[in-house]
Design a protein around this nucleic acid. Structure first.
Length: 598
RNA sequence: GGGGAAGUAGCUCAAUUGGUUAGAGUCCCGGCCUGUCGAGCCGGUGGUUGCGGGUUCGAGUCCCGUCUUCCUCGCCA
């Protein structure tokens, strides 16, 4: 070994020992003759003192940040008054006798000590430097610890860790697939898995009644702060279970990992909210329960209030909904109206409001509240003196819901409801089995086509498919969907009925999912499971606002890698080999230097 | 595909209604300094204001286009 100890290890007990440290130079404090160096590695920082009394200073002229330095020396107690209580190793210092630079380093491309404030573009281009920062290392330690705790917890409960293929079959439903050509089969392509869904169901048929895997998944869709084209899931599946079994397992797992990683206690069981309630009360299918702000429906009253903006929206098939802001009556007009930009950003025409003081109602909506409907509104809102109420009306229900969703988030933020470190889990249940496809009008699965319908609604599968509820559940943490799962269909005939309901012919179903349908014939036990977004979970536990921060080498919003430059063109020879030809790109100013092979 | 924000020194930012030679901190380089831990003090180098047009006597600032990064709608079974 080139070192005897790490930079976080030495204590008063080591005083007098001859040791060798290797680390990166964190800072150099140069007093002319005497130099102090903070040497840093994964484990901590140790002060190295280079004095002309103990080392040939001419041998080390230019010490700079982030050089890799090896120091041999003796551990000494620091003089009285010179100890640093903020450093684990602050009782001692290493008096260097020889030092050598093992890895030189030029001046850095960005300010290391203020890494959090540096452009993402630069940070991710030099991610290997960015990750050297202690704060970043902490995130990845947390990520590693989380995965370790998850595996331990599940293995103690007799889950078996099984792997599934990365090169698999394209299933055009759902998200767009990433495609991989096959040299041995020109003209045919693999797809990278969107999830191991079908494979884990086959494990159930195979008798591995408790399966788990921490696995990479791929979806070729647009990126967001919480969405990357490749991401990591905890995938698990159990045989002979119902909803409650999966939920209880996950509640125990979450409580365990949160306790292990943060020391915090999580209350179980988690709150359960049905999908319809979540949409109405929180304007979201993943409500952030750190805030208790609630939205209420006004469409019925809006028709009677005599306010054309409201009644017009409802008559056009839209909605009017409102949110009460306790204490918002104190806000200035300017403050109140500053939130309008948020809803306009979602396409809403404007943001109406009304406040209640001891002198009665005030604000743009107040004069429409003098009639009976208005009184009912005040009653329903629960407005008290000192409160404020915001209203969103639009001919598009989607715009109303989106606007209120963003408004609620911002209000929760302004009211200080989003306390750092708070963790509010909940389940969202009773999702519809299908959504309506806007183009074809056909039902499309909300979750995936293997989700079991609620038995109570089964008779409507053909007659009124959109009214059928699914045996599906989402796990939500602080407003983020961190997991989703369901009880699956384990009977072949029911699976075929669902395929039919979504407009898949018998032949299509066969060609796409024959292996699943075949497997369901051969003694498939009832089963269900869930998949958990590891990146999102780590992000929340680390207090970050983007999963990029907890992914070592993430993609930009355009799906490129700033570090490697991927994706790139490949040589004609490579294309030939896999039997691919690239279509010309419709770009007037295509860059010639990339034209060699695309 | 739509909406929004940002882009000025290696980095983080400033620059009045369009007005003289685009500044500061940091980094880097040089000098001084033996108890610092955000070391200190003195001096210095460093700019195609993302790119391309336009308006103007004059553009970092206004207009148009474009590129990049970020946020978001659509999209994400």
């Amino acid at each position: 070994m080139l070192r005897s100890h790490t930079c976080g290890e030495l204590r008063a007990a080591h005083v007098g020992q001859e040791v060798t440290l290797v680390g990166w130079i964190d800072t150099v404090r140069d007093h002319g003759g005497l130099r102090f160096i903070d040497l840093r590695d994964r484990y901590g920082r140790t002060q190295v003192t280079l004095s002309p009394d103990s080392i040939d200073v001419n041998s080390l002229e230019s010490l700079r940040s982030e050089q890799v330095l090896q120091v041999v020396g003796r551990v000494e107690t620091r003089p009285d008054g010179m100890k640093n209580p903020r450093l684990e190793t602050g009782e001692i210092e290493l008096i260097g006798t020889t030092a050598s630079i093992l890895g030189d380093c030029p001046p850095l491309p960005f300010d290391f000590s203020r890494g959090d404030q540096v452009n993402d573009e630069l940070r991710f281009q030099y991610r290997f430097l960015d990750m050297r920062r202690a704060e970043v290392q902490k995130r990845f330690q947390l990520r590693s610890d989380l995965q370790h705790e998850i595996r331990n917890y599940l293995h103690q409960r007799r889950f078996i860790d099984l792997e599934t293929p990365m090169l698999t079959k394209s299933t055009p439903e759902g998200a767009r697939d990433f495609l991989v050509p096959s040299r041995l089969n020109p003209g045919e392509l693999y797809a990278l898995p969107q999830s191991p869904q079908i494979f884990k169901q086959l494990f159930m048929v195979a008798g591995f009644d408790r399966y788990m895997q921490i696995v990479r998944c791929f979806r070729d869709e647009d990126l967001r702060a919480d969405r990357q084209p490749e991401f990591t899931q905890l995938d698990l599946e159990m045989a002979c279970v119902e909803e409650d079994d999966i939920m209880e397992l996950l509640e125990g797992l979450m409580a365990h990992v949160v306790q292990a990683l943060t020391g915090k206690q999580v209350e179980t069981p988690f709150r359960r909210i049905c999908y319809e309630d979540a949409q109405l009360r929180y304007s979201s299918d993943s409500p952030d329960l750190r805030s208790d702000l609630e939205i209420f429906e006004l469409s019925d009253l809006a028709l009677e209030m005599g306010f054309k903006v409201f009644s017009g929206a409802v008559e056009a098939g839209g909605a009017v909904r409102a949110i009460r802001v306790p204490g918002g009556g104190e806000w200035s007009r300017k403050e109140i109206e500053s939130l309008e930009a948020i809803v306009k950003n979602q396409g809403a025409g404007g943001l109406a409001w009304m406040k209640r003081s001891d002198q009665g109602l005030a604000g743009p909506v107040a004069r429409f509240c003098e009639n009976e409907a208005g009184a009912a509104l005040v009653e329903r809102s629960g407005m008290e003196v000192g409160d404020l109420c915001y209203f969103v009306a639009d001919a598009s229900k989607r715009i109303v819901i989106n606007s209120l969703s963003f408004l609620r988030k911002e209000l929760a933020n302004r009211l200080g409801h989003l306390k750092p470190g708070a963790l509010e889990f909940c389940w969202v249940t009773e999702f519809p089995l299908f959504d309506e496809d806007e183009e074809s009008g056909l039902p499309v699965p909300c979750h995936h086509p293997f989700t079991s319908p609620n038995p109570e609604d089964l008779e409507r599968l053909e007659s009124a498919p959109l009214s059928v509820r699914a045996r599906a559940y989402d796990l939500v943490l602080n407003g983020f969907e961190v997991g989703g799962g369901s009880i699956r269909i384990h009977q072949r005939d029911l699976q075929e009925r669902v395929f039919e309901a979504i407009g898949l012919s018998h032949e299509e179903a066969q060609s796409k999912f024959s292996f699943l349908l075949e497997a369901l014939k051969y003694g498939a036990p009832p089963h269900g499971g869930i998949a958990l977004g590891i990146d999102r979970l780590v992000m929340i536990l680390a207090g970050d606002e983007s999963i990029r921060e907890v992914i070592a080498f993430p993609k930009t919003q355009r799906g490129t890698c700033l570090l490697t430059g991927a994706p790139t063109g490949v040589s004609d020879a490579q294309l030939d080999e896999v039997g691919l030809q690239l279509a010309p790109i419709d770009e007037p100013d295509a860059e010639p230097n990339e034209g060699e092979n695309c």
